[in-house]
């Protein structure tokens, strides 16, 4: 996983804000990029994914649903978007069953919920997003974005400062 020392920290007050953040993040994504989404049940990983997918040109945001059972969903945006969810995996070799290795050969954007189990098998990580629900209200979420490339993080930070009212 990536160090969070230079991370971008944002508080989202609503699902709509989280979707908007995802939309914004999508403009810094390129084909081949991979985003890890970490956080407990209900933290907002799938919600954020809806925003990212929408920003990547996926027209029907309702079609972006939880892959907890299906493990991988594919959506057609301006690039293919793979939405992976490893919630139900308990051993990393389980990934062999879902053609996980093949994803990396395509120029797609890969979004992974519950990535922890697969860390050793993820060849590249562009952004890592940690979502925390402090349980102070139904709708407040603390979102931390880190990146393996400091320049791309800096870029995203400027975008967010410009558009996200920080």
């Amino acid at each position: 996983m990536i160090s969070t020392s230079d991370a971008i920290r944002i508080t989202s007050q609503s699902p709509e804000q989280t979707v908007r953040l995802g939309f914004l993040l999508a403009s810094s994504l390129l084909p081949g990029d991979c985003v890890l989404l970490r956080g407990h049940i209900g933290a907002g990983k799938t919600c954020l994914t809806k925003g990212i997918a929408s920003g990547l040109g996926v027209q029907d945001i309702s079609s972006v649903h939880s892959p907890s059972f299906t493990l991988i969903n594919r959506y057609e945006g301006t690039v293919p978007v793979y939405h992976v969810d490893l919630y139900r995996l308990e051993i990393d070799s389980a990934i062999d069953d879902i053609e996980f290795e093949d994803l990396w050969n395509e120029s797609a954007v890969i979004l992974i919920e519950w990535p922890e189990i697969a860390v050793g098998r993820i060849p590249r990580i562009t952004f890592q997003i940690d979502l925390v629900w402090p349980m102070l209200s139904q709708t407040e979420r603390e979102i931390t974005i880190s990146a393996s490339d400091p320049q791309r993080l800096e870029h995203l930070k400027r975008d967010i400062d410009d558009h996200f009212g920080h």
């Binding site: 493990l71 995996l89 051993i91 389980a94």
Partner: peptide
């Protein structure tokens, strides 16, 4: 035991 489906084992 695992709290869910483990696909590789499933296959």
């Amino acid at each position: 035991k695992f709290g869910g489906v483990v696909p590789e084992i499933a296959a």
